[in-house]
């Protein structure tokens, strides 16, 4: 039997099908955002943001979980940023491509692929039990820092590579040492690109649940030391939804989660575009 369609007809059909599937993907993803905001925005109020949760989150707001999220992320970034940027500098400026760089990159890529529940298991056994930090901000932020390290390495590396070679040559020709060149010429020029990676990992951290719930715990009070347990927004949302504590508070928390992640991501996108335009 002959294929009944001419190539042109076949193309027209395929094209329509592809258009439909693409539109479907966009629709699904847009619908998720719309659905959460539609149910969540009415719950939002100033009180919801600045009041502490009461009765396990059934009443009150989400203030302590916002604080928990922010503290955890700031600590994780404080640890992961120097490590990540240092690694990127070493890979791009201090070693020729070779076995060493391949091993370091492979390690970083593998780390990026490890699921968050494995990080949670690891953080639980090492920080919570072996080192006796307990469920705490310290355990949570260390685990989170390990998780976001690969993102920071990769984006910093790309940002540093984007800095034109001529910048370095000028610095060397003026008698600058390697480190002077890196710290005073290369890093300042790559800074916006590096910032992109850091902000990107903030977005990822806000939504992280599995790694955080087993290391930072789920205490609802405002943390007062590195060793107090805390509950992040995403963990709070998970508990509200899964234990059926309050559907409306769950929607409200989800809306805050989504709005903060989307604004962080949009800001990252804007920064990245500006950075790329500057050097190309």
């Amino acid at each position: 039997m002959r294929w009944p369609l001419t190539p042109r007809q076949e193309q027209a059909i395929v094209r329509l099908l592809l258009l439909f599937l693409t539109a479907l993907s966009i629709f699904i993803l847009a619908f998720i955002i719309f659905f959460i905001l539609r149910h969540g925005l009415p719950v939002l109020s100033w009180e919801f943001l600045v009041r502490n949760p009461r009765e396990m989150g059934k009443e009150g707001g989400i203030f302590s979980t916002i604080i928990g999220t922010i503290v955890l992320i700031i600590l994780a970034l404080t640890l992961a940023t120097p490590l990540g940027v240092g690694t990127a500098i070493f890979l791009t400026e201090y070693t020729p491509e070779g076995r060493l760089t391949r091993i370091i990159r492979f390690g970083s890529e593998c780390l990026a692929g490890i699921p968050s529940i494995i990080f949670g298991l690891f953080g639980f056994i090492l920080f919570v039990t072996k080192l006796k930090f307990g469920w705490s901000i310290l355990s949570g932020s260390l685990t989170l820092a390990f998780m976001i390290l690969p993102t920071i390495i990769r984006t910093s590396e790309e940002a540093i590579k984007f800095v034109p070679q001529a910048y370095r040559e000028v610095s060397f020709s003026l008698g600058g040492t390697k480190w002077q060149t890196v710290s005073r010429v290369v890093l300042p020029s790559a800074l916006p690109g590096i910032a992109t990676g850091v902000i990107l990992s903030i977005g990822r951290s806000i939504g992280e649940t599995a790694a955080v719930i087993f290391t930072a715990g789920s205490a609802l009070r405002i943390p007062d030391s590195l060793f107090s347990s805390t509950r992040t927004m995403s963990v709070h949302f998970y508990i509200l939804a899964r234990e059926g504590i309050s559907l409306s508070k769950a929607y409200g928390t989800a809306a805050v989660l989504l709005i903060s992640i989307l604004s962080v991501n949009i800001f990252t996108y804007y920064l990245m575009n500006r950075f790329l335009r500057k050097y190309s």
């Binding site: 966009i26 993803l29 939504g207 649940t209 995403s234 949302f237 939804a241 989504l258 989307l262 991501n265």
Partner: peptide
């Protein structure tokens, strides 16, 4: 327009996907 939009959506946390699954 569409590519960055879909990449932004990659940031939706998994708990939110799970929740959408449960309620819809």
């Amino acid at each position: 327009l569409v590519k960055p939009m879909i990449e932004l959506l990659a940031g939706i946390p998994s708990v939110v996907y799970g929740f959408i699954g449960v309620v819809i």
